[in-house]
Amino acid sequence: MPPSLETRDLTIRFGGHVAVNAVSCAFHPGELTVIVGPNGAGKTTYFNLISGQLRASSGQVLKDGRDIGRLAPSGRARAGVGRAFQLTNLFPELSVLENIRLAVQARSGVGRQFLRRASGHRELIEQAEGYLAQTRLTEVAHQPASALSHGDQRKLEVALLLAMEPDVFMFDEPTAGMSLDHAPDVLDLIAEIKKDRSRTVLLVEHKMDVVRALADRIIVLHNGTLLADGKPAEVMASDLVREVYLGKRGAA
């Protein structure tokens, strides 16, 4: 099966510092890849290069074989690359429902309509309500996003990504800072996405139990380079990875 997303020699330099160094990697539909690596390894930078928040110094980003590396983030989103952010990144004064509706209408193309009432688009609102139900946010639908608890804001972040209905789902530490009773909700959602074999999922995650439960494949980034790539059991067993990941030489 051809990869849905591929990076070729993807590199970015900030002055003399190479944050992501010639990373080539292909991601296939139906596969959930977890990206691990110590802090500062370049995981989020790698994500930013793929979804367009940063422009690569060199190298390519291919979506279904087409180079999207020169597109603005909006163009990449429309090409089917969806991204959820590590730090909560919402529209704080808009209601939860409006947040979701924005994601739904971006995809449906009605965002350019300016003389029709938004509330007249029943189908948009019904779709948005569907995502709220799926993420268990229905009760807070009419609250501003800024009034939500941290856990609910994380869920809304995931709901926004679901509502974009991308081909490629990118999650950057989706459970960061979540309490133990909220985290499973988000992980269940990701597991649900994974069931659809046409979707490609990329996940940055630190919690090893999460990695074990979800990963089909693990790649390890260290100092911006791709250090290891393989099945979870192989990668986690490798000494090199343990050394880098645990940050200790010779650790068990």
Binding site: A72, S74, G75, R78, R83, F85
Partner: peptide, 14 residues
């Protein structure tokens, strides 16, 4: 107004 970068990331050409 609220979050330009996020609007862009959702697919809107700001």
């Amino acid at each position: 107004r609220e979050n330009e970068a996020r609007a862009e990331a959702l697919g809107y050409r700001v």
